[in-house]
């Protein structure tokens, strides 16, 4: 990092600190939401580690409502964390697994 980019980075950090102060109550709420979301995502990712799972299976493992699981799966699929992995034996539900990138 050269001097200018160091200076830029310092200014940027200072600006973000100011913005967080300015929007304090709202930032706290958003941080709560983020924490909760990260916990749910970790639980779902763990549940998919062993084998591909359907939405009802994930709901049963994680104790989340099935509609909520579906929302997280849709979001994770959109951003490349989760992929479809065929259907269950009954042919009713799709199965989901972690994407190669998410598995690391």
């Amino acid at each position: 990092m050269n001097v200018t980019s160091k200076e830029q980075a310092r200014k940027r950090t200072q600006m973000l600190v100011e913005l967080r102060k300015q929007h304090d109550a709202q930032v706290k709420q958003a941080q709560e939401r983020l924490k909760e979301q990260q916990t749910i995502r970790k639980t779902l990712q763990r549940a998919m580690q062993g084998a591909p799972r359907s939405v009802p299976q994930l709901a049963a493992i994680t104790n989340l409502a099935a509609y909520e699981v579906l929302w997280h799966i849709a979001a994770m699929k959109k951003y490349g964390v989760v992929e479809e992995a065929g259907m269950d034996t009954g042919g009713e539900y799709y199965l989901y697994e972690l994407s190669k990138e998410a598995k690391g």
Binding site: A66, Y93, Y94
Partner: peptide, 16 residues
């Protein structure tokens, strides 16, 4: 679309 296919919103079942 949101699921890339037709699934029902309550639990992701493919509707019959």
């Amino acid at each position: 679309g949101p699921y890339g296919r037709v699934l029902r919103p309550s639990d992701g079942k493919q509707p019959a």
